[in-house]
Amino acid sequence: MKSYLLPKTQLASWLSRVQADRTLYAPVADADGVLDWREVSDPAQIVLPPGVPDLPVKKLFFPTSETMLQYAYRADKAAVVATPPPATPFAVFGVRPCDALAQQVADLVFLGDLPDPYYQARRDAGTIIAVNCTEALPECFCASLNDCLTEAPGADVLLTPLDDAYLVAALTHKGEDLLAATAGDLPEATEADLARQAEVAAATAAAQTRKIDMEGVTELVRAAYGDEDFWKEHAEACVGCGVCTFLCPTCTCFDVRDDAISGRGQRFRCWDTCQFADFSQEASGHDARAHQWQKQRNRICHKFWYSVDRTGVLSCVGCGRCLRGCASHSDIAATIEDLKKQPVTPDE
């Protein structure tokens, strides 16, 4: 697939061409300065921070809340209309490689044998334009977990900052189509430019101060499952706010609710979290994970074990948002480090 060189001074004009045929989303600072994924009218609004923007990009494919049915009802009659999935083409610029990979992990839940029509429509309509990292935040640890910095799986187009230009590479057919329509007049990248891409990725990986040996992590977590004291100690301060899961780019649990009043109603789904009190509570009152330490154990086991069992991949990408956002300073990476210091208890 072709790669191009985009002078940094021409980024805004290239993005204008990108948004000619589609809605453009990118990290934009909200009133509180939080970097959220918003529709961009002027590329000058875009803020590319070091590391990941505050919020994960998953909301563009899996909104915090979306309507599935709308209905009118009275005592003797009801009329129900299914809400069709949206299909407006869009591109999202400024996605970091860890978030692009996370979307691929979420695909394994939402697509497959029973594809989710809403998620599928947004995935089909959306093009992910990733921008490689050149700096690392203290919380970043993707390089310990995966090769997203070099391969950017999940991205359709990858921009890698070189000196005064971006190396622009298509990684999928969707990305190729986008570049064919918007980058035809740009010079093609040389072999030397492509070699620089690997150097940038390696330098960013080296800049990550948080380095964790993830060798055998699934077995490690599985073996420690029954060590209640360990999990209690590591979840002691957890208040169950769920921010770790809402900020997690791969967490995709949702609730389905009906909001009905005065004869009109809607069925919608909204983000939910295994950290909330009633998430796994049955109608009988029984709850297999009633305690907060069990809920935190579930989160960590899911990332490093259950996900591997179900889909073959880890569902932690190392973006570091959960530990950046946690009010009680829970640190998933440090938890894994601590696990390694535990005496191994044999599997039951």
Binding site: L114, D116, R269, Q281
Partner: peptide
């Protein structure tokens, strides 16, 4: 087994027990 369920099709996560849905 009984579990809390929402979607019924392996997406919403409510009925997860360890690696099983």
């Amino acid at each position: 087994l009984e579990r809390r369920m929402r979607c019924g099709v392996g997406k919403c996560g409510h009925c997860q027990i360890n690696s099983k849905y």
